[in-house]
Protein backbone atom coordinates (compact mmCIF):
# COMPACT_ATOMS: atom_id res chain seq x y z
CA UNK A 1 0.00 0.00 0.00
CA UNK A 2 1.21 3.50 -0.77
CA UNK A 3 2.86 5.17 2.18
CA UNK A 4 2.64 8.74 3.33
CA UNK A 5 5.22 10.42 5.54
CA UNK A 6 3.94 12.82 8.16
CA UNK A 7 5.41 14.43 11.25
CA UNK A 8 4.01 13.74 14.69
CA UNK A 9 5.42 15.89 17.47
CA UNK A 10 8.53 16.44 15.39
CA UNK A 11 9.16 12.80 14.49
CA UNK A 12 8.66 11.47 10.98
CA UNK A 13 6.31 8.52 10.78
CA UNK A 14 4.91 6.47 7.91
CA UNK A 15 1.40 5.38 7.36
CA UNK A 16 -0.82 4.16 4.55
CA UNK A 17 -2.41 6.80 2.34
CA UNK A 18 -6.07 7.16 3.19
CA UNK A 19 -5.49 6.63 6.90
CA UNK A 20 -6.69 9.11 9.44
CA UNK A 21 -4.28 10.93 11.72
CA UNK A 22 -5.58 8.75 14.54
CA UNK A 23 -4.73 5.58 12.60
CA UNK A 24 -1.33 6.95 11.66
CA UNK A 25 -0.53 7.67 15.30
CA UNK A 26 -1.72 4.30 16.47
CA UNK A 27 0.21 2.45 13.74
CA UNK A 28 3.29 4.09 15.16
CA UNK A 29 2.50 3.34 18.77
CA UNK A 30 1.44 6.86 19.64
CA UNK A 31 -1.61 7.20 21.83
CA UNK A 32 -4.29 9.84 21.18
CA UNK A 33 -7.16 9.85 23.69
CA UNK A 34 -10.55 9.01 22.14
CA UNK A 35 -14.07 8.42 23.34
CA UNK A 36 -16.65 8.57 20.54
CA UNK A 37 -14.29 6.81 18.12
CA UNK A 38 -14.65 3.06 17.85
CA UNK A 39 -12.94 0.83 15.32
CA UNK A 40 -15.54 -0.46 12.89
CA UNK A 41 -17.90 2.54 13.20
CA UNK A 42 -17.94 5.69 11.07
CA UNK A 43 -16.30 8.60 12.87
CA UNK A 44 -18.29 11.70 13.81
CA UNK A 45 -15.73 13.86 15.59
CA UNK A 46 -18.14 14.61 18.42
CA UNK A 47 -16.20 14.11 21.68
CA UNK A 48 -13.27 16.36 20.65
CA UNK A 49 -10.85 14.41 22.86
CA UNK A 50 -8.70 13.40 19.88
CA UNK A 51 -8.18 17.06 19.05
CA UNK A 52 -4.70 17.61 17.64
CA UNK A 53 -2.89 20.46 15.94
CA UNK A 54 -2.57 19.88 12.20
CA UNK A 55 -0.36 22.32 10.33
CA UNK A 56 -1.14 24.97 12.90
CA UNK A 57 -4.91 24.42 12.99
CA UNK A 58 -6.95 22.37 15.42
CA UNK A 59 -8.79 19.33 14.16
CA UNK A 60 -9.99 15.92 15.24
CA UNK A 61 -7.51 13.13 14.54
CA UNK A 62 -10.31 10.63 13.91
CA UNK A 63 -11.80 12.54 10.97
CA UNK A 64 -8.71 14.06 9.34
CA UNK A 65 -6.94 12.07 6.65
CA UNK A 66 -3.17 12.22 6.34
CA UNK A 67 -1.46 14.27 3.64
CA UNK A 68 2.15 14.17 2.63
CA UNK A 69 4.29 16.38 4.83
CA UNK A 70 1.49 17.03 7.30
CA UNK A 71 2.77 18.28 10.66
CA UNK A 72 0.79 16.97 13.60
CA UNK A 73 1.19 17.95 17.21
CA UNK A 74 -0.44 15.77 19.83
CA UNK A 75 1.30 16.53 23.10
CA UNK A 76 1.24 20.23 23.80
CA UNK A 77 0.22 21.94 27.02
CA UNK A 78 -2.59 23.67 25.21
CA UNK A 79 -3.99 20.39 23.87
CA UNK A 80 -3.62 18.67 27.24
CA UNK A 81 -5.51 21.49 28.89
CA UNK A 82 -8.20 21.42 26.21
CA UNK A 83 -8.72 17.65 26.45
CA UNK A 84 -8.86 17.80 30.20
CA UNK A 85 -11.41 20.63 30.16
CA UNK A 86 -13.55 18.70 27.69
CA UNK A 87 -13.41 15.66 29.94
CA UNK A 88 -14.32 17.74 32.98
CA UNK A 89 -17.33 19.04 31.08
CA UNK A 90 -18.42 15.45 30.45
CA UNK A 91 -18.11 14.54 34.12
CA UNK A 92 -20.01 17.68 35.10
CA UNK A 93 -22.79 17.15 32.59
CA UNK A 94 -24.63 14.14 34.01
CA UNK A 95 -24.57 12.06 37.16
CA UNK A 96 -21.53 9.88 36.78
CA UNK A 97 -21.28 8.14 40.14
CA UNK A 98 -18.56 5.57 39.71
CA UNK A 99 -18.79 4.03 43.16
CA UNK A 100 -21.91 2.02 42.49
CA UNK A 101 -21.79 1.73 38.71
CA UNK A 102 -21.99 -1.72 37.13
CA UNK A 103 -19.20 -0.59 34.80
CA UNK A 104 -16.92 0.59 37.62
CA UNK A 105 -13.43 -0.53 36.71
CA UNK A 106 -14.42 -1.23 33.09
CA UNK A 107 -15.37 2.22 31.96
CA UNK A 108 -13.73 4.28 29.24
CA UNK A 109 -14.78 7.55 30.86
CA UNK A 110 -13.27 6.52 34.19
CA UNK A 111 -10.07 5.45 32.42
CA UNK A 112 -9.87 8.78 30.62
CA UNK A 113 -9.92 10.65 33.94
CA UNK A 114 -6.84 8.63 34.96
CA UNK A 115 -5.16 9.08 31.59
CA UNK A 116 -5.72 12.82 31.36
CA UNK A 117 -4.80 13.46 35.00
CA UNK A 118 -8.20 14.90 35.92
CA UNK A 119 -7.73 15.45 39.66
CA UNK A 120 -10.89 17.55 39.94
CA UNK A 121 -13.70 18.99 37.87
CA UNK A 122 -13.26 22.76 37.71
CA UNK A 123 -16.57 23.53 35.99
CA UNK A 124 -19.91 23.61 37.81
CA UNK A 125 -21.56 20.21 38.17
CA UNK A 126 -25.01 20.22 36.59
CA UNK A 127 -26.71 17.35 38.47
CA UNK A 128 -29.60 17.05 36.01
CA UNK A 129 -32.71 14.98 36.63
CA UNK A 130 -32.51 12.05 34.24
CA UNK A 131 -34.39 8.83 33.81
CA UNK A 132 -33.48 5.20 33.51
CA UNK A 133 -35.34 2.94 31.09
CA UNK A 134 -35.47 -0.69 32.17
CA UNK A 135 -38.45 -1.68 30.03
CA UNK A 136 -36.40 -3.89 27.75
CA UNK A 137 -36.33 -7.50 29.00
CA UNK A 138 -32.55 -7.80 28.85
CA UNK A 139 -31.03 -4.33 28.74
CA UNK A 140 -31.09 -1.04 30.61
CA UNK A 141 -30.35 2.49 29.41
CA UNK A 142 -29.39 4.84 32.23
CA UNK A 143 -29.29 8.38 30.84
CA UNK A 144 -27.43 9.54 33.93
CA UNK A 145 -24.32 7.79 32.64
CA UNK A 146 -24.65 8.51 28.91
CA UNK A 147 -21.94 10.65 27.29
CA UNK A 148 -23.74 11.10 23.92
CA UNK A 149 -20.95 9.45 21.95
CA UNK A 150 -23.65 8.01 19.66
CA UNK A 151 -21.83 4.69 19.36
CA UNK A 152 -25.14 2.92 20.01
CA UNK A 153 -26.81 4.96 17.27
CA UNK A 154 -24.07 4.15 14.80
CA UNK A 155 -23.69 0.47 15.58
CA UNK A 156 -27.46 0.00 15.41
CA UNK A 157 -27.70 1.75 12.03
CA UNK A 158 -24.46 0.79 10.36
CA UNK A 159 -23.77 -2.71 11.67
CA UNK A 160 -27.07 -4.15 12.82
CA UNK A 161 -29.11 -2.14 10.32
CA UNK A 162 -32.01 -1.81 12.74
CA UNK A 163 -31.98 2.01 13.19
CA UNK A 164 -33.58 1.66 16.60
CA UNK A 165 -31.39 4.23 18.31
CA UNK A 166 -31.67 7.87 17.45
CA UNK A 167 -30.93 11.27 18.94
CA UNK A 168 -33.56 13.72 20.11
CA UNK A 169 -33.61 17.31 21.40
CA UNK A 170 -30.87 19.90 21.53
CA UNK A 171 -28.17 21.22 23.83
CA UNK A 172 -28.15 19.80 27.34
CA UNK A 173 -31.54 18.24 26.67
CA UNK A 174 -30.07 15.98 24.02
CA UNK A 175 -30.88 12.27 24.56
CA UNK A 176 -30.46 8.96 22.81
CA UNK A 177 -33.88 7.50 22.15
CA UNK A 178 -35.32 4.27 20.85
CA UNK A 179 -37.84 4.23 18.02
CA UNK A 180 -38.60 7.95 17.98
CA UNK A 181 -38.99 8.12 21.72
CA UNK A 182 -40.95 5.08 22.89
CA UNK A 183 -39.73 2.99 25.82
CA UNK A 184 -37.03 0.61 24.76
CA UNK A 185 -39.23 -2.35 25.70
CA UNK A 186 -41.79 -1.16 23.15
CA UNK A 187 -39.30 -0.38 20.40
CA UNK A 188 -40.47 -2.69 17.62
CA UNK A 189 -37.36 -2.27 15.48
CA UNK A 190 -35.01 -3.46 18.24
CA UNK A 191 -33.62 -6.89 17.46
CA UNK A 192 -32.20 -7.25 20.98
CA UNK A 193 -28.84 -8.00 19.43
CA UNK A 194 -27.03 -6.27 22.29
CA UNK A 195 -24.41 -4.55 20.15
CA UNK A 196 -25.28 -1.21 21.71
CA UNK A 197 -24.49 -2.68 25.12
CA UNK A 198 -21.10 -3.86 23.97
CA UNK A 199 -20.06 -0.59 22.34
CA UNK A 200 -21.33 1.78 25.04
CA UNK A 201 -18.17 3.18 26.69
CA UNK A 202 -19.74 3.75 30.12
CA UNK A 203 -22.39 2.19 32.30
CA UNK A 204 -25.21 3.82 30.33
CA UNK A 205 -26.35 0.84 28.28
CA UNK A 206 -25.89 -2.33 30.25
CA UNK A 207 -27.15 -5.86 30.73
CA UNK A 208 -29.71 -6.44 33.43
CA UNK A 209 -28.74 -8.40 36.51
CA UNK A 210 -25.23 -7.00 36.90
CA UNK A 211 -23.90 -5.81 40.25
CA UNK A 212 -21.45 -2.97 40.79
CA UNK A 213 -18.27 -3.40 38.74
CA UNK A 214 -19.54 -6.62 37.16
CA UNK A 215 -20.31 -5.28 33.70
CA UNK A 216 -17.51 -6.00 31.27
CA UNK A 217 -17.99 -5.04 27.66
CA UNK A 218 -16.39 -5.98 24.39
CA UNK A 219 -16.51 -3.04 22.02
CA UNK A 220 -13.80 -4.66 19.88
CA UNK A 221 -16.52 -7.05 18.64
CA UNK A 222 -17.60 -4.48 16.09
CA UNK A 223 -14.23 -4.30 14.38
CA UNK A 224 -14.00 -8.09 14.36
CA UNK A 225 -17.44 -8.34 12.84
CA UNK A 226 -16.55 -5.83 10.17
CA UNK A 227 -13.36 -7.73 9.49
CA UNK A 228 -15.23 -11.01 9.05
CA UNK A 229 -17.81 -9.37 6.81
CA UNK A 230 -15.13 -7.97 4.60
CA UNK A 231 -13.47 -11.38 4.42
CA UNK A 232 -16.89 -12.76 3.37
Amino acid sequence: MEQVVIQIDGNEVRTARGNTVLEAARDNGIRIPTLCHLDGLPDIGACRLCMVEIDGRFGTACTTRVRDGMKVRINTDELHEMRRTVLELLFAERNHVCSFCVSNGHCELQDLACELGMDSVRVPYRYPTLSLDATHPRFIIDHNRCVMCARCVRVCAEVEGAHTWGIAFRGTQVRVITDLGVDWGNAETCTSCGKCVQVCPTGAIVLKGQATAEMEKHPELVAELEERRRAG
Partner: peptide
Protein backbone atom coordinates in the same frame (compact mmCIF):
# COMPACT_ATOMS: atom_id res chain seq x y z
CA UNK B 1 -25.66 18.87 21.52
CA UNK B 2 -23.32 16.90 19.32
CA UNK B 3 -19.93 18.04 20.60
CA UNK B 4 -19.08 18.35 24.27
CA UNK B 5 -17.42 21.80 24.47
CA UNK B 6 -20.46 23.52 23.02
CA UNK B 7 -23.14 21.33 24.59
CA UNK B 8 -21.79 21.40 28.15
Amino acid sequence: GKCIPCRV
